[in-house]
Every structure is written in structure tokens, then in C-alpha cells.
């Protein structure tokens, strides 16, 4: 390499190093001067980003001491199966009651208790032909069986009622007794939205 070539290389490398230092300086300066806006922006990005969680979903389980679920299901996930042998109904039960959930199966209303917790359980399903259209044919003392991975719970029907969708007193959420309330729209052959609901009340068998 000639002397001028060496000088060329030296100049280029010097400029590269100086420019790299300049850019580091600018980044550090921006970090200090704009720390709050950058932090807010980073937080915003985290809030609207999907978390790449490697945490595996734990199975739903019941703590027998406290009679509360130790692990709750994820919203929208299936956690049980409901069957009414007398009506030949067998449907998946999902945690949540959004339109998306109700399209798939029976929805468990958030805020109500889970089977085994000793409180009121509120399930709902559409009155379509592939869901609960036959619910009106249920009789007193018919069995409703809810099978979860932490146990199978059998309930006996003791009452049915037709209520309005605003009659929240008719579907009370209480902890004193384990009652399963299953409801659907009424009349069963309604074509559009109806304000009436057909509710089945069933108590836990011992």
C-alpha cells in the first residue's frame, strides 16, 4: 500500500469513528432530553403490542379449602361441558358471554360463581336450533350435568320462569347456595331480538 492510500484509509476510518461517536452522542443526548416522551411512547407501544408470553396456560382448578377456583379460565376459553340428558343437549361451556362466545356454545356470565364454589352460576345460550331451542321442554327434577376438569356437578331442575331481560333480581348472584341458572331468549321461535328470557333454575345435588 502506498503512503497516500494509507492516508486515505486513515482518513476514512477516522471519519467513521468520529461519526459513530457523534451518533452515539446524539442518541444519548436524545435519551436524556426526551426521556419522558420516549418512555411514554415506549409504554404506548407495549400497551398495544401482543405479549409474547411463554407462560403455559394452567388448568382450571378448585381450591377445596377456600371453595374458590385456584386457577380461572381465560376469557373466551372452554372450561366445561353441559349436558341435559332428558333433552339430548350436550354443549361446551365457555367463560364469558360475548357474541363471539355465544356463537360457539354456552356462555358463563362473568361475575357469577363456578361449579363447586357454592354460589349462583349463570349460564346463557342462544335459542337457535343447534343450541337451546328445546330448553322449554325441560321438566322439574330433570338433571343438568356440568363436567369440568376439576369435577362433575349434577343439578336438579326445581323451577322455570319467563322473565324480562332487565329483571336482574330474578337471576341473583349469591354465595349462600349453589344454584345453576340457565337461560335463553323467549319465545323460542322468535325471529328478532326479544326482551324475554326463559330461565331454568337447578340446585346442586349432594
Amino acid at each position: 500500500m502506498t503512503k497516500s492510500q494509507v492516508l486515505f484509509m486513515k482518513a476514512i476510518i477516522t471519519n467513521l469513528i468520529i461519526a459513530f461517536i457523534y451518533s452515539l452522542l446524539i442518541v444519548i443526548l436524545s435519551y436524556f432530553l426526551l426521556s419522558q416522551p420516549l418512555s411514554d411512547f415506549s409504554l404506548l407501544l407495549d400497551l398495544i403490542s401482543a405479549n409474547d408470553s411463554t407462560k403455559t396456560l394452567e388448568e382450571v382448578s378448585l381450591d377445596l379449602t377456600t371453595k374458590n377456583l385456584a386457577v380461572y379460565p381465560e376469557y373466551g376459553s372452554k372450561y366445561a361441558e353441559l349436558s341435559i340428558p332428558s333433552l339430548n343437549i350436550k354443549k361446551d361451556v365457555y367463560y364469558g358471554d360475548s357474541m363471539r362466545v355465544l356463537k360457539k356454545g354456552i356462555g358463563h356470565t362473568m361475575g357469577s360463581f363456578f361449579p363447586g364454589e357454592g354460589g349462583s352460576i349463570l349460564y346463557m345460550g342462544h335459542n337457535t336450533s343447534n343450541m337451546l331451542r328445546n330448553l322449554g321442554n325441560i321438566n322439574l327434577n330433570d338433571k343438568i350435568i356440568v363436567t369440568t376438569n376439576y369435577g362433575t356437578y349434577t343439578y336438579s331442575v326445581y323451577e322455570t320462569k319467563i322473565i324480562e331481560d332487565t329483571d336482574l333480581n330474578e337471576v341473583p348472584i349469591k354465595r349462600d347456595k349453589e344454584i345453576l341458572m340457565l337461560y335463553t331468549c323467549y319465545p323460542f321461535t322468535t325471529i328478532v331480538y326479544t326482551k324475554y328470557r326463559f330461565v331454568v333454575y337447578a340446585t346442586l345435588d349432594n
Partner: peptide, 22 residues
């Protein structure tokens, strides 16, 4: 050179933050 390096820094520091937006 400095602005070139700044662009590269921006790519390295920020790209991954934008790829998981939901």
C-alpha cells in the same frame, strides 16, 4: 456518516417494538 449511523441505530433500537403491535 452520522445521519447514516443514526438511521441504523433507529432500525436496531426501534424495529422490534413495532413488530408485535396488535
Amino acid at each position: 456518516l452520522t445521519s447514516g449511523f443514526l438511521l441504523i441505530f433507529m432500525y436496531i433500537l426501534f424495529k422490534s417494538k413495532f413488530m408485535n403491535i396488535l
